[in-house]
Design a protein around this nucleic acid. Sequence first.
DNA 1: CTCCCATGATTGACGTGTCAATCATAATGA
DNA 2: TCATTATGATTGACACGTCAATCATGGGAG
Lengths: 174, 174
Amino acid sequence: MPGSRKLPTREELRAWREFIETTEALRARLAARLQRDTDLSTGDYTVLLQLSEADGTRLRSSELALAVGWERSRLSHHLGRMERRGLIRREECATDSRGAEVVLEPAGARAFHEATYPHLRAVREFFVDALTPEQITAAAGIAAALRTHLDDGAPAPGAHRTTAPATAAETASE
Amino acid sequence: MPGSRKLPTREELRAWREFIETTEALRARLAARLQRDTDLSTGDYTVLLQLSEADGTRLRSSELALAVGWERSRLSHHLGRMERRGLIRREECATDSRGAEVVLEPAGARAFHEATYPHLRAVREFFVDALTPEQITAAAGIAAALRTHLDDGAPAPGAHRTTAPATAAETASE
DNA sequence: CTCCCATGATTGACGTGTCAATCATAATGA
DNA sequence: TCATTATGATTGACACGTCAATCATGGGAG
């Protein structure tokens, strides 16, 4: 027999390329839109969202890392940039001297609130409006399947809260 | 009536988050795997794939940009890094003094051939094996729908060759 | 022929991500 | 108690991406 069948077929590969390239483009497009409308990056938005919903609009750095699913060093770098811009502030943690608490600054809260609506509109425009309801359901299923597969046998860098609720702020419900 | 219905519903938003975060994780995971196995980045791989299949294993810079769907400045930066590592070489173009031709170097060809099998195995492992055949088809359909939606009303940065054939090198056919 | 602008490509600045190393404090155990 | 290890977090180096600016050449319009 010719080469062992551990490689994708032509069709599978075509699907793969279309999928990965398109999701990449989607990500880039949404980031550009957010940048254009709000001077926040998608990373900023993610962080601010979590902080907005946290008790006292503050979180331990490690909890924040878990919530957004980032490596700690990535979060550190990002918080450094956000702190320089006055969006957040870092404080020492009372209960653990090693730890840090990330606190939402007024400027950060303001920027987040101004960004929410344009961002969600963009999500609707680029994702929701592009797909049929069935495709949206299928997309969620595909994502879940991929995630599961990634998670077992994974170095589990972000772990990630799989059961994230769609919160008030996320839906910008009136 | 309460706020105009231009925003995603809770469910749509949940699907969105799961989708975008998972595809991000998938991308990162595959990049890490390629890096681990081959000392090529996914960007390197993409460029080398196009060059490998080009006539004379060389391409005009602009054609390469079109083929991979990147902005020119991105390609310039990337080629600079690849050139430093001896994977490719840049030559002046005979027919247009402004233009540049990108030429595959032996080291680049070698690196690409060594990377092909591990990379495709990883695609199979992280994408193909994670999904049912129906899901793979659905994924392709979703990607196509998203791409179409992105393309109209787009600043069309990469344009992108939508009808890309799955070539011999891509499938690593024996 | 000469200006003007379009095109092909590069550059610099800066934000973003990853990896490995580091550092301080906490927790553990002999 | 004190050495050891684990944990929370930051840092530095470097690859990657985007944007705006730049630069040289090509190709008309007059």
